[in-house]
Amino acid sequence: MAIEVEEVKRIAKLAHIKLNEDEITKFAKQTQQILEFFDELKTQSDSLDKNWRPDILGKSTLEREDIVIPPTPVEKTISLAPEKSGSAFQVPKIIE
């Protein structure tokens, strides 16, 4: 199953990764190879019930009490930031 260049570009954009011309070709080819594995998976699993949700078996998710745990001291948090202004993270202007 061949993967269109436009598709590769769309996916790369969703993932916010830049690909040059070479990489687009390479990724398209490699993805195609791997997906040929997957295509076998598609036909194998065609016999499986389409409504089967194996992910909802088991016990209920863990819960915790609604009790405050002291937050991280802000100096520690903001010291990790590549760019900051006061205690806020700073980013290039967001255009709505």
């Binding site: 997957f38 089967w52 194996p54």
Partner: peptide
């Protein structure tokens, strides 16, 4: 649906 959903079922198999 073609990939992820099917893979989760195959995983259980």
């Amino acid at each position: 649906d073609a990939y992820y959903t099917k893979a989760t079922r195959m995983r259980q198999v």
